[in-house]
Design a protein around this nucleic acid. Structure first.
Lengths: 248, 248
DNA sequence: TCCGGTCTTTGATCCGGATCAAATGAAAGG
DNA sequence: CCTTTCATTTGATCCGGATCAAAGACCGGA
């Protein structure tokens, strides 16, 4: 709930870059200045809920650091993660007050926010901001549909491999289509959270991780730190065609 | 491929209403006239492919009559439907030339189309069109995420019930939240297509339909014509909370 | 009317992943 | 250092839905 002032001068700080890239790649300096005035920071603790399903969500923004998830839950407690927010990802629904899912910080998290109403007003006067948001939403929709294929048709092993492929790709340079060679990265999620993302149980996730390790597809120094000796070898396990799945 | 002239005067025809509702709820008459000039019609036969995955898609538009599907396919033939297009639904990706899925007519189909390029240009000059498209895309995204919950966590019986609930709701007045009493409608899809939508096999779909019939949740006069004696009874089977799942 | 094809139902069996259960490991606090 | 707690691994068993197989049901065409 607390509002945090940026720690660096606006024009220099990395956060602004992120905000700028996420929201508008083409703002002129006037618009940039208006965005600059509007923005504020919010911090959340690991495990803290940011928005509850069916609650009002009066801001939009992007993740500066940390990880957040979008989840849907059934009455009896069955959960399905429907989105994973990594640094530079955008959250929020311009034009929508109510989110149909929970947003939760899974690690300590800092977000760069804009109040929804004034942001929407700016959207009405600067057409390319609306177009940029449309682009981002289409990207999310593509990702969601790719995920539907995973949830509906892939085996447990393919699901794990697909998930790790996305993380590995993200780690080795933003959006690099098919990274080469060895990649090391941290797992941001517990086995249970991975299970919720992949439509599995935590035991199955654990077993399949062990199996992939046994088969030399990955190495686990610590439980949450992964090395993939060969990205291509991992990608073969996803069931996607060779050029690599998550095409946007 | 053929272009079809509208059968009625533009201002009177039902197609225009559909197009108008789908694309822009707030056009003034100048913009309406521009849209009117741009639009054309295309017909497709049942089973015909409209766009292939990874092919260019040089138009956007809305379904006038008939049913189309969006599907993703893995190399080995596993298929997952990622969208179902009913009359008045919008298709197309302004700003995107390439679709990452197949679009297929499952019945004979008529679409009201606009060429993508000029449509995009109009989007740039009339901000509320971009906003309208953003709204529609957010709706699709919500639906996709709801579907992720279904694919990842629901039982076969719940999947079928959820699917029928959507059709029943759609049948009894567009977007009516929770229709009352008895509803009769046609199944637009074969058992196999339903299976591809729900992440099941056609045998499981058939068995669960039989089970729901045996339990009095639905009646099957013909194989593809369904009567739901009580919408609420059906909704109970979906696993969603009482107010009815697919909240937008 | 019969025939061939497609869609659908139903039965029998199998298997991948869920469930139940227990042990191990690793970090946090007294 | 020991206890507590939580994440993870691993084992044993079960079950829902997949797979394999066969038999209707329906339709259009000869």
């Amino acid at each position: 709930m607390s509002l945090h002032a940026p720690k660096l001068a606006p024009r220099d700080c990395g956060d602004c870059q992120i905000r700028h890239r996420a929201v508008c790649a083409r703002c002129d300096s006037d618009e940039l200045a208006r965005l600059e005035e509007m923005k504020y920071y919010r911090s959340f603790q690991a495990g803290q809920n940011i928005v509850w399903s069916a609650d009002r969500m009066d801001f939009v923004g992007s993740v500066v650091s940390g990880i957040a998830t979008l989840t849907q839950t059934m009455e009896d407690g069955r959960r399905q993660m429907v989105g994973l927010l990594l640094p530079s990802d955008f959250v929020g629904r311009p034009g929508r007050a109510i989110a149909p899912y929970d947003v939760t910080a899974v690690t300590d998290l800092v977000m760069c926010c804009f109040r929804r109403k004034p942001f929407e007003e700016m959207m009405g006067t600067t057409p390319h901001v609306a177009q940029r948001l449309l682009e981002m939403t289409l990207d999310e929709l593509d990702a969601a549909r790719e995920w539907m294929l995973l949830l509906g048709r892939k085996t447990a092993r393919e699901k794990i491999a697909s998930f790790l492929t996305i993380l590995a790709r993200r780690e080795s340079g933003l959006k690099a289509r098919a990274p080469k060679g060895q990649i090391t990265f941290d797992l941001p999620l517990t086995r249970e959270e991975m299970a919720d993302y992949l439509g599995l149980t935590l035991e199955t996730v654990s077993r399949q991780m062990s199996a992939l390790k046994r088969d030399g597809v990955l190495e686990l120094e610590e439980k949450r730190r992964i090395t993939v000796p060969s990205f291509d070898r991992l990608a073969e396990e996803t069931g996607d065609d060779a050029d690599g799945g998550m095409l946007a």
